[in-house]
Design a protein around this nucleic acid. Structure first.
Lengths: 220, 220
DNA sequence: AATTCAGGTTAGTGCGCATTAACCGAATTG
DNA sequence: CAATTCGGTTAATGCGCACTAACCTGAATT
């Protein structure tokens, strides 16, 4: 439910997870702060997914995390910064995870399988974040959204690199369309999910999506 | 570029395209009015796609259609009504088109092929509307969005009915996931499209998406 | 123990923007 | 050729909401 990493980007550049601002000490306060931050991001994922970025007020956000209103500004410099942190975190996780999958795979076919499984797993586990990402990325001020887009592009290129070894001789542009199509296919389930209820983890759904993605990517 | 039908829903229930409100006469004014309305819907599709429903003001909308500000209220009862008309129109078009395709097909395989081609064609021609539909459907007040969702569901059921003849014996729930996945795949291209520029109609793109969709739907 | 500081709180404040009011001139109508 | 209706205009109006101010309290630091 909660985004796994989602560090950085709250204050200008967080020195590391869980540490007091000036001294590097790990105090009781810094722990509390970190968990507040996490709670805020988690609430944000849920609320933004349900009602959209503009449908959620700072007050909503705060009280969903147990504090109320402007306390949010002790953790994020603006409402946009919350969204930014959320999307940056998730994009980074995807990129890291994708790279790890490829590195640990003996060959391109296995890598592609691994990427598919990874993406399906991610989409089924975090439908909220997927939805927010699809819908509200453009709500960010350009400079913020560029960072997210850069991560996104890098992730796509991970896929394209693998695809170019599985389907040698295909133009990169074609491969990029293939990758995007696969994302669209795999990420389609959040649209079925009815308003925020966690998708019950039917295994057949996971398998079906994997089969379809594989078939689509290898088509022709 | 402009949505094809998109009648109805402006005033409570438009009696028919292009006719003076009270008398059924086709006067010069009613023509002008109809074209204003069309211009507004077209502008709305473009602007909403670029900036999102909440990123577009009534003023923006009006001036993009050559009139300014509150004149919009002479054609739509509210900003939401504009979005509603847009999405209702497009959903109706899809449903009608899908049903027509199925009716004119000799058998299930041809019907499925036809549906795929129809959807790909639509997605490549109207990326704006696809994007608005994906992103801003939840910005509507519940009673409006239900109408759109109903049309959407009906369209999905057209696909499911065809799929159940192509893949006999599969549970409807599985087929529904397949249909949604196919939509996700096919509708993925608007996400590549860079900010409103019309997608140059590369044929290979169309063919590739059709191949992938077909492969995905028949997978396993 | 005295001091600092960080995270909360509750009141503003100000702006953007949807919607409404009041008014106009030209097409439609009888 | 009056009377009317309609689509347009510009000027309020009012609300929702992001953000700021001022203040409070208790943990961290010394």
């Amino acid at each position: 439910m909660s985004p796994s990493s989602a560090t950085g980007a709250g204050s200008p550049a967080g020195p590391g997870p869980v540490a007091s601002a000036d001294t590097g000490r790990v105090t009781g306060r810094s722990l509390a702060k970190a968990s507040r931050r996490a709670a805020l991001l988690s609430a944000a994922a849920k609320l933004f997914a349900e009602r959209g970025f503009n449908g959620v007020s700072i007050e909503d956000l705060g009280s969903a995390a147990g504090v109320s209103g402007p306390a949010v500004y002790r953790h994020f410099s603006s409402k946009h910064a919350v969204l930014s942190a959320l999307l940056t975190g998730v994009s980074q996780d995807l990129l890291d995870g994708g790279q790890a999958v490829v590195e640990n795979s003996p060959g391109p076919e296995e890598a592609l399988r691994g990427l598919i499984e990874f993406q399906v797993d991610f989409a089924l586990r975090n439908p909220d974040v997927i939805r927010v990402h699809d819908r509200d990325l453009d709500s960010l001020p350009p400079e913020d959204s560029q960072a997210v887009r850069a991560l996104q592009r890098a992730y796509v290129e991970v896929w394209v690199a693998v695809l170019s070894r599985v389907l040698p001789g295909q133009e990169p542009a074609r491969l990029r369309v293939r990758a995007h199509a696969a994302f669209g296919l795999i990420n389609s389930t959040p649209h079925i999910t009815h308003r925020g209820k966690p998708v019950r983890d039917k295994i057949w759904r996971r398998n079906l999506l994997e089969q379809m993605a594989w078939a689509a990517l290898k088509a022709e």
